[in-house]
Simulated assay, not measured.
Amino acid sequence: MTTDYHSHILPNIDDGSDSVETSLKMIKMMKRQGIGTIAATPHFHAHRTDLDSFLAKRSRAYEKLMAESPVVSDVHIGAEVAIEKGISELEGLEKLCISGTRLILLEPPFTNYSDWIVEEIDDIVNSRRLLPIIAHVHRYMGLYSKSELSGLLSVDAVFQINAEAFESFGTRRFANKLIDSGRDFVFGSDAHNMGDRKPNFDLITKRVSAENIKHSDNILKSALVNEADSEFVF
């Protein structure tokens, strides 16, 4: 069983699952695709909601889901944090990490590239002592120039690849080059529903070697072990 680092399975919190029933169906499909650990990462936008309200809503959604005993019970709550100006200075930012770790899933903006994006990521690493996971990095191929994308790939981070990247030649080539580059990487479904964005991790198991899937799984395992041995407390 493997790890899905990016999902929107928590009910009624963002544009993901619209009900507990949908969440349970998504998780059941994930299990059939070999998922044994799920990072539940609802969207967090600092300019839309305050942190405490988000955390309370996330906790309610998680508890409501887990009360129904989903077939995959190893669920780590986190967030898909939009990179905005000043996000590195947000008080309590560490509470958005994948539970039990310092790993934090960050989503670069789908706008023109700016140097402040990398500066915010660097500040999260250096000032907040967190390890970013850059969400669905392949999606920025057509948005950022080659040099801008290289700038994003230069940050001290783990790079997350969606299953969808292995559907077409261009994104599959990019994903494979990233995997072969020596950078740390993880995989995710970015599943939102049971329709057009249903769990699709089987694309990864068909296209990616068992060794590389194991590498992805080990990022979370190592983070959990290291966190257990540290004095860092959320």
Results as ranks from 00 to 15, higher is better:
M1N: 07
T3F: 10
D4A: 06
Y5W: 00
H6M: 05
H6E: 07
S7Y: 00
I9L: 08
N12M: 13
D14Y: 09
S19R: 05
L24F: 03
L24N: 02
K25P: 02
I38C: 10
T41H: 05
H43M: 11
H43W: 06
H43Y: 11
F44K: 05
H45R: 13
T49N: 12
D50W: 03
D52W: 07
F54E: 10
L55F: 11
K57I: 04
L65C: 10
L65E: 12
M66E: 11
A67L: 13
V71G: 09
V71I: 15
V71Q: 10
V72F: 05
H76I: 10
I77G: 00
I77L: 11
A79D: 06
A79C: 07
A79H: 01
V81F: 07
G86L: 09
E91F: 11
E91W: 08
G92D: 12
E94R: 13
C97E: 10
S99T: 09
S99P: 02
R102F: 05
I104P: 00
L105D: 09
L105A: 09
E107W: 01
P108S: 10
N112E: 14
S114D: 13
D115C: 07
V118L: 14
E120M: 03
I121L: 12
V125D: 08
S127W: 08
L130G: 04
L131G: 09
I134P: 02
H136Y: 04
V137R: 01
V137P: 00
H138L: 03
G142L: 08
G142M: 08
G142S: 11
G142I: 04
S145T: 15
G151K: 12
L153V: 05
V155P: 07
V155H: 07
A163P: 03
A165I: 01
A165Y: 02
T171H: 13
R173K: 15
R173Y: 11
A175E: 05
A175V: 00
N176P: 04
I179Y: 00
I179K: 01
R183E: 09
F185P: 00
G188F: 01
D190T: 04
A191H: 00
N193L: 07
D196A: 14
R197V: 05
P199W: 03
N200Q: 12
F201W: 06
D202Y: 14
L203W: 11
I204C: 02
T205N: 07
K206W: 09
V208E: 05
A210G: 07
D217M: 06
L220K: 03
K221H: 14
K221Y: 13
S222G: 08
S222Y: 13
A228D: 13
E231D: 15
V233I: 15
